[in-house]
């Protein structure tokens, strides 16, 4: 069985991940809705995971995939806690516009 990287090439995956990561950064900077900001963070995490799997295949080593597994576990925990915080903020302020979160401003 021959491998996928002979056909596609690792550099295509690098460019795909880089552009996906940049789209995530763009989302964090562009939107004001805190939930969309969270989704952008998920996009960035997925870009990094994709590159991890690509290099795991490139080096034929399972450890990259194990790392992706742990990163998915941490991402799940992060999303759960983050959305709970957003629900609490929504209950107190009535919106999740990040421009309204100015309570720490002196």
């Amino acid at each position: 069985m021959e491998n996928i990287l002979n056909h596609i090439g690792i550099e295509n995956y690098i460019f795909l991940s880089v552009i996906l990561f940049c789209i995530g950064v763009f989302g964090v900077l562009y939107r004001r809705n805190a939930i969309i900001v969270f989704m952008s963070i998920e996009i960035m995490l997925n870009a990094v995971n994709l590159l991890f799997v690509a290099f795991s295949t490139y080096h034929q080593d399972a450890e990259g995939q194990v790392f992706v597994f742990f990163s998915m576990a941490v991402a799940a925990a992060e999303v759960a806690v983050g959305l709970a915080i957003l629900v609490a903020i929504f209950r107190n302020i009535g919106s999740i516009d990040i421009a309204n979160l100015k309570n720490l401003k002196g």
């Binding site: 996928i4 596609i8 994709l50 799997v53 295949t57 995939q65 992706v68 597994f69």
Partner: peptide
């Protein structure tokens, strides 16, 4: 779909 292309079934 990308993971399936890599044959990384578990992920």
């Amino acid at each position: 779909g990308h993971y399936l292309l890599f044959n990384a079934q578990f992920l």
